[in-house]
Amino acid sequence: MNNFKFTTQPLKETKSAALFLLSAALFAGCSSKTDSSQNTADVKSDEGSEQSTIKLGVTGAIYEDIWQPAKDKLADDGINLKFVQFSDFSTPNNALNSGDIDLNAFQHEIYLNTEKESQGYEIEPIGYTFIIPLNIYSSKYKSLEELPENAVIAIPDDLTNGGRALKVLDEAGLIELDENADFSPTVKDIKSSDKNIQIKELKANTLPSALPDVDAAVITGNFALDYGLKTEEAIYKDQSLDQPEYWCLIAARSEDLKDPDKKAAYEEVVEAFQQPETEDVFNNDFGGYFIAEGWNE
C-alpha cells in the first residue's frame, strides 16, 4: 500500500515573484495577441536594403538576451532576425502555423507534439536550444538527508512539469515510481516513499514563494532564476538533462521547409544560435540555469 499523501489544495497566500514567460517549457500552455498584420511568413529582403528578415516568435524579453549573439552573427551574414513577442504559450504555434511568423523558439518537444495533435498544426522542430533543469530547493534544510518524516514537497500542478518533477524525486531516491508509468507520471504512479513524503501540487510560478510553507519544492529553473534562487542553493540538482523530450527547440512550418532557400536560411539561424557566445550568455548572465543540449543532433 502506498505510504504517501498528496493534495491540490492551495497553501496560504504568499507574495508572488515577478515572472517571465518561458517554455517549459517551456513547459505548459500558459494573453494578448501580436499584431499579425505586421508579420509575414516570407524570408524576404527589407525594402531598400540587402538584408532579409526572419521573424522569430518568443515568449518573454529574456529570450532576446539569449538570442542576441545569434542576432548579431546573422546580421553580419545579411539576415535581420526580428523578435516577435507573445505573452502566452498557445499563440506562438498558431502564429507559426498561420504564417504570421517564420520560426518560434519557446517550447520543448512534448508541448509541440501535444499542440500538433490537438490543433492539427503542420510545424516541426529544426534544431534544439537548451534545457532548463528542475532542481529541488528548500528554505529549511540544506540536504535531502535532513528532510523529516512526512516531509511536504511541492511540485508543479501541470502534467508535463509535474511528471518531470516526480521523476526528479524518484531520481533523488525520495519516492519510487511505478516502472510501468507513462512518460509523464502522476502522483497516482508513486509506489512508495521511505520518508512518507507528502506531495503538494501548486502552480509552477508560485513554487518559489511557497518555500517557507513546505519542506522542499521542485522548481523550474526559469522561475527559480526570476525569484533569485541560485543553482548552488539547490539541495538536489536535476540529473535527467539528456532526455530529448525536454529539450527546448526551434520550430518551423513544414511547408516552408520544402522551399530550399527558406530551409537554408532557417538552418543558418540554428547554427547562429548554437555557438559558444550563446553558452557564455547562459553561464554569465543566467547562472547556468540554461544548459545547451541537442546541439549536435
Score class of each variant (00 low, 15 high):
residue 4 F to A: 06
residue 7 T to R: 11
residue 8 T to M: 07
residue 8 T to P: 00
residue 12 K to E: 14
residue 14 T to E: 13
residue 15 K to N: 07
residue 16 S to C: 08
residue 17 A to K: 09
residue 18 A to W: 05
residue 19 L to A: 12
residue 20 F to E: 14
residue 20 F to N: 04
residue 24 A to F: 06
residue 25 A to W: 02
residue 26 L to A: 13
residue 27 F to A: 15
residue 27 F to Y: 12
residue 29 G to L: 07
residue 29 G to C: 04
residue 30 C to K: 11
residue 32 S to L: 03
residue 33 K to S: 11
residue 33 K to M: 09
residue 34 T to H: 08
residue 34 T to S: 11
residue 36 S to F: 07
residue 36 S to N: 05
residue 39 N to V: 08
residue 39 N to H: 05
residue 39 N to G: 15
residue 44 K to F: 10
residue 51 Q to R: 14
residue 52 S to G: 03
residue 52 S to L: 08
residue 59 T to C: 14
residue 59 T to D: 04
residue 59 T to V: 11
residue 60 G to W: 08
residue 63 Y to A: 10
residue 64 E to Q: 14
residue 66 I to A: 01
residue 67 W to P: 00
residue 74 L to T: 13
residue 80 N to E: 14
residue 87 S to D: 14
residue 89 F to T: 15
residue 90 S to E: 15
residue 94 N to H: 13
residue 96 L to G: 06
residue 98 S to A: 15
residue 98 S to D: 13
residue 99 G to M: 00
residue 100 D to V: 00
residue 103 L to W: 08
residue 108 H to S: 01
residue 109 E to K: 10
residue 110 I to Y: 04
residue 111 Y to D: 04
residue 114 T to N: 13
residue 116 K to E: 00
residue 118 S to G: 03
residue 119 Q to H: 12
residue 121 Y to L: 10
residue 123 I to F: 03
residue 125 P to C: 07
residue 125 P to M: 09
residue 126 I to A: 02
residue 127 G to V: 07
residue 127 G to K: 11
residue 129 T to K: 07
residue 132 I to T: 15
residue 134 L to F: 14
residue 134 L to G: 03
residue 137 Y to L: 03
residue 140 K to Q: 12
residue 142 K to T: 11
residue 144 L to T: 13
residue 144 L to E: 08
residue 144 L to F: 02
residue 148 P to V: 09
residue 148 P to G: 07
residue 151 A to D: 01
residue 156 P to C: 08
residue 157 D to E: 14
residue 160 T to G: 01
residue 164 R to I: 00
residue 164 R to F: 01
residue 164 R to Q: 04
residue 170 D to I: 01
residue 175 I to D: 08
residue 176 E to N: 13
residue 179 E to R: 13
residue 179 E to H: 10
residue 183 F to E: 14
residue 185 P to F: 12
residue 187 V to N: 13
residue 190 I to A: 10
residue 193 S to D: 12
residue 197 I to N: 00
residue 208 P to R: 12
residue 210 A to K: 07
residue 210 A to V: 04
residue 210 A to I: 02
residue 211 L to S: 05
residue 215 D to C: 02
residue 215 D to Y: 00
residue 218 V to D: 05
residue 220 T to E: 08
residue 220 T to C: 06
residue 222 N to R: 04
residue 225 L to K: 04
residue 228 G to F: 01
residue 229 L to E: 04
residue 230 K to L: 05
residue 236 Y to W: 04
residue 236 Y to G: 03
residue 237 K to F: 01
residue 239 Q to A: 11
residue 239 Q to E: 15
residue 240 S to H: 10
residue 243 Q to F: 07
residue 244 P to K: 15
residue 244 P to A: 07
residue 246 Y to E: 05
residue 249 L to I: 15
residue 249 L to H: 06
residue 252 A to W: 10
residue 252 A to G: 06
residue 252 A to Y: 11
residue 254 S to G: 05
residue 256 D to L: 02
residue 256 D to E: 07
residue 259 D to I: 09
residue 266 Y to I: 04
residue 267 E to L: 12
residue 268 E to W: 03
residue 268 E to A: 15
residue 269 V to T: 02
residue 270 V to H: 00
residue 271 E to L: 12
residue 272 A to S: 12
residue 277 E to G: 02
residue 279 E to K: 15
residue 281 V to C: 07
residue 282 F to Y: 15
residue 284 N to Y: 04
residue 291 I to N: 03
residue 291 I to V: 15
residue 294 G to H: 06
residue 294 G to Q: 04
residue 295 W to Q: 03
residue 296 N to M: 10
